[in-house]
Structure formats: C-alpha cells, structure tokens
Write a protein that binds this DNA or RNA. Structure first.
Lengths: 340, 340
DNA sequence: TTGCAACATCTTTAATGGTGGCCATAGTCT
DNA sequence: AGACTATGGCCACCATTAAAGATGTTGCAA
C-alpha cells in the first residue's frame, strides 16, 4: 500500500505538504493540492488511520462499552439497537468506533480506563453499567469524556453526559393509563431496586397514584429483578391467592413472564386481567394479545449518545442529561373497566 | 498514562528491554523481567496498542465486514449472532476487532481493501456479501486473508476460507421430512436465485425429490427473494388458485409471510397446510404453531469463522471450507398425511 | 530605487509509543 | 586464550502530525 512518503516523492513535495493537504491546512497552494490528490488517486493512497492516531494529538476513536450485547436475553435486542444507533452516528463522522463488550461470564475483565488508554480512545459511551461498578467509578475520575445510558451521573465531573428517556414520566403516563381505565387492584412487577430506571419508574408510579388519591401501599409489589423467569414464578404464586385487575410491569421481558403465568392460570388477557410492559421489544407486538407498553427508541438513544459525546469533547459542556422521547403504545392487553 | 519510556527509565534499562519483556523475548533475565513488571504495575503501565500496531510487522487487528447487521429485518438477528460469535472468539486472543457495517442505504461505501489497509487489518471475515460485489472481488485479489460466510469461494487464492452449514444436506433433510410424511403437493418458496445458499438448498431439494421418484418440475416455485413481504404476497395469490399440502420455505422470514397468508385465507396450520422454514430465528419458536425449521447456529458460525481466519494467517492453509452442523427442529407446523 | 516587512508556500525536524535486527559487553566453558 | 552464551543497549523504522524554520515573491513606504 502506498504511504504518504510515496505520494510525496511522486508529487515532488515533502511529506508534510501531503499531510497538510489532507488536513486542510491553508498553506498549500491550490495547484499543489490538486497535484497531490491526483498522485494519491493514481497510487491508490489513503492515510493510515493507525499512524494518524498515534501521531495526532486529537484522538480519533470513540469507545462503546456495553454489557448488554453479550449477556442479554435472546428476546431483548435493546443493546443491539443502541449499538446500531451509536455505530450509525459515529460512522458519519471522522471518528473510529472501538467496541468493548463485557461478558459477565468471564472475570477476565479489564479496567475501562486501561481499555481507553491502550487504544487512545478519546471518549466512551457506556451501556448496561451499574453505578457501583468499580471500573465505572474509576473512569469518572479521569479526564475521559463519557456518556452513560440509563444512569444519572451524580458527580461534578463536567465531562460526563447521560441519556435516557424520562422514565418517571413514562411510568406515570402508563400508570395513569391504567388508573383512568378504572384499574385499582394493581400488581406492580418491578425490576432491580438499585437501578436508576427502576427508581424513576417507581417515582412516576407514585405520582400517578397520588393523582388518584392512592399511595404506593395501595398496590402490591412483585420484585422480579427485570427477569422474565422471576416474573413468571412470582406472578404464578401471586395468582394463586390474589387476582389483580392489572399487572403493571417495569419491563416487557417481565411482562412476558407474567403473561405466561396468567395464561397458565386459565385466565384471559385483557378480559380477566390487563397487562402493561415497558421497552417495546419486537416481541411485544406479537404477544397474544399485543402488549400495551412504553416504546423506547433505542436506536435513537444510541445516536443521541454519540452526538452528545462529541459535543462534550468539542464544547466541554457542563454535565448534562438528554431526555429522549418515549411513546405509550396502546395495544390490546389492557381492558377498560366499568367506572368505580 | 505511563509509556514504555517511563518504565524503562524507572527500571533502569533501555526501552527495548521493556519491549522485549512484554513480547516474551528470551534474552531478558528473569530478574530484570520481574523488576520491569513490578515497575510497570507501579506506574500502571500497559503497552499502547495503537503504537504497537504501527510499529509491529505483524498485524494485530482483524476485521468484520458485515452487511446484515444494519440492514436486516428486525426479526432477523442472524447477523448479530454471527457478530457475537466472532467477537467472543477474537476477544479470547491478542487480536483487536474492527467492525465495518455496510449500510446499503448509503452509497458512501468504502472499498474493503482500503478499509483494511487504512487500519492495518490483517484479515477479515465477510458476512452478507454478494459474490458480485466489486469490493469483494477486489479483496480476493489481495494478500489479505479472508473468511467468507455463506459463500463458496471459487478462486485459487489460498488465503480465502469459508464457513457455512451444509445447505444442500439440510435442505434435503427437510424435503425428505415432508416427503416421508407423504406430502406430494409442495410449494417451494425460494430465495434470491444467484446466492450460494439458494442454489445449495435447491440442490438438496432436488436430491430429496429424486429419492422419491419426483423431479423439480413436480413442485411449484414461488420466488420470494428471501423477503417476508414478497413471500406473503406471492403465497396469497398462489392460494387463490391452488392449495398445496405444504409450503417448503427457504427461510423462516419467508415462512412468516406464508403463515400470514395461510391464516388470512382461513386455513389452519398444520391441519390444512404444513409449513417449514430455514434458519430458526427466535421468532420461529413462537409462531402459531411453532415452526418446523432448520436451525443454524450463527454464534457458532461466527466463532468458527474467527478461528479459521487465524488458522489461515498462521498456517497458510489451502483454501478450505468448514461445515458447521445444522439441526432439523421438528415442531408443530407439519402434519403427517395418510400414506399415498 | 531600495529596503524590508508581510505573505504564501514549502521544508526540516522532532515527536508519537512502540518493534526488531544487530552490535556490545562480560562472564563461562573448553 | 578463544569461543560461546546470556543479557542488554543502540538505532533505524513504522506512517503520520505539528511546530518552527526557510525560501522566494510581493507591496509599499522611504
């Protein structure tokens, strides 16, 4: 492959002129510029990104650190959609994308900071990370710009951005949707308590309940840890002694488990029991009946994250959070009850 | 971040000794080795991969060039599974993985060779590529080792490997499965004619037919180009004049389209018409009824491809193809007919 | 007309963080 | 003493960027 040296020689100029030409410096005459491009084309030359990366002060590659892709449930394609969004956005720019998928099975695990330093990574997007992840904490204390998803950054580090939907609002909307349809006996299937999204969804639920003169105590809770299996087991047991009018699930995956339990109990959805989810997985349109849920546009979230990361790098923005729009997908898993 | 220079200075040796230590050269005394690692740990040093990549003769990164990930139907996660497999396998090694997702929407499109050269990529895995892709052809003429998926490489280039299931055999098995259950009025929903997999599946079908004293002419063909929508439209029209005992689909996606058409025609599966697919998408277990299909283990295919690529690099193997095992998933979309 | 600053357009040199071949040194073996 | 071996240093090199220096040309005031 032709290098910058070959082009320089053939064009009869020094190496740095070629470099300058490719980096839009002004001190290269139009004539020379043309000649260099002509020679480059002839020699089939393109700048070597690796060398560029090494010599250039400005970093050329961004990282995506994701725990979701390798670990998720096969029905859960969220992490992949985020990946798609990030990839699409970054491929529009001059940046390279380096991917670090975390496999919880393996303990090999490398420090995120190390991962970034080794590769001259100038900024990273983190998905599926827990706030108590030690490597995450370490990363926050560096000067590496970051965008975290589904976490609200609490530190003072101005290089950290975050992106998510407004989980509290979405949850509130969904709870109101049920309450307005006169559901009062709610079973809430919640996720992992410590997570930001779960806290927010809980908050939204509470607000909605208050709006209807109710309290959190007035509903039952099944803590299923965002697991389909756990949701199935818990709701199965729950249905043996109680029959709520609706299950309000904090994720579609858990809703699937609940739906299975309901069907196995010989009950119909939504005639006997209504069910709502959260996420809008592809499967959710195909359940019987189709699931009423909150749609998160994960591709968009990925794109927004990638853009935010670049903004942080360029403008050194203050810490900030971007809300991505969600949407309540009213399908057929919720019945309107006679007014109370 | 500490560099090799810092370590060398602090350990009181020259840079190259540190380099040699990290690259397992024998001419470093055990004592020095220990000291260097101690200093490195103290300074939190890890070799910079970018620099290594530039200076080292041996290439450190492998590429995955995939057209499936960005473009595929949302129900089709095959390309992602391949990606997972490739990633898993490569992350076990000292190689880096660079990803090049092809977006058919965009014409930007870069030559694969250029992509590889720019990044010092020492070998690539290609997925979802058409044999008439000009950039693919260009790549075959270089000395860059490659592994292609679902294509049988026809060139003499010894650096090209390929991986797929035995499509002909799988197709034959499935056809026999139907024939042995006394299906004789078959409608075959085939994919894109020019593709390797389609040709192979056709070949297997023919063999199975011959085994039962039939010819390709004895079955009907719907050429649906691997599209769910096309399969739906074609089978809908087809059902208006004919009613086969079974639809033999060359992909699950097309089977979904067919199932939709059958249901809309007021017919039952498998009581009135049987359906078989090919791929075993996640959805296929959840159709009504669950789809009988050929399972391709795409994660495994990805892993095998990554291993093969490394073998080619190391041993300069002759051109070779690896068959990955498939499996006939007998579910509930096929009925056994009374013997003819 | 001259002198010289300003400008446009290059060239030179050092640096990026490593690798790797070859050379040097000193101690050991025969 | 000469050869060999173990160990480590030196330096060129990878493909590029970037800062500083060099060269020739131009414009304009003295």
């Amino acid at each position: 492959m032709a290098t910058i040296k070959d082009v320089a020689k053939k064009a009869g100029v020094s190496i740095s002129v070629v470099s300058k030409t490719y980096n839009n410096y002004v001190d290269v005459s139009e004539e020379t510029r043309q000649r260099i491009f002509a020679v480059a084309k002839e020699l089939d030359y393109t700048p070597n990104i690796v060398a560029k990366n090494l010599s250039s002060k400005k970093q050329m590659t961004l990282g995506l650190i994701s725990s979701g892709v390798l670990n998720d449930n096969e029905k859960d394609n969220n992490a992949f959609d985020i990946f798609k969004g990030v990839y699409r956005e970054i491929s529009e720019t001059r940046f390279e994308l380096s991917i670090n998928l975390i496999d919880s099975q393996k303990q090999k695990q490398q420090s995120y900071v190390q991962y970034c330093r080794e590769r001259n990574i100038g900024g990273a997007i983190l998905q599926g990370i827990r706030t108590d992840d030690q490597y995450y904490k370490e990363l926050l204390n560096t000067n590496i710009p970051c965008v975290v998803l589904d976490i609200m950054n609490e530190t003072e580090n101005g290089l950290i951005g975050s992106v998510s939907i407004d989980n509290a609002l979405a949850s509130k909307e969904m709870a109101l949707y049920l309450l307005e349809r006169n559901h009062r006996n709610l079973a809430v299937v919640s996720g992992t308590k410590e997570t930001y999204v779960n806290k927010e969804r809980m908050k939204g639920l509470e607000e909605a309940l208050h709006a209807h003169g109710m309290k959190l105590d007035d509903v039952d809770f099944l803590d299923a840890d965002f697991s389909e299996e756990a949701a199935y087991e818990l709701s199965k047991m729950y249905l043996q002694k109680t029959q709520p009018t609706a299950f309000f699930c904090f994720s579609d995956l858990m809703a699937f488990g609940v739906i299975k339990a309901i069907k196995e109990a010989g009950l119909r959805i939504p005639e006997d029991i209504s069910v709502t989810g959260f996420d809008d997985l592809i499967f959710s349109s195909y359940t019987q009946p189709p699931l009423t849920t909150i749609k998160q546009d994960f591709v968009e979230i990925g794109k927004v994250a990638a853009r935010l990361l670049q903004d942080i790098k360029e403008n050194n923005l203050e810490r900030q959070h971007i809300w991505v729009k969600h949407q309540l997908m009213a399908r057929e898993s919720v019945k309107t009850l006679p007014s109370v």
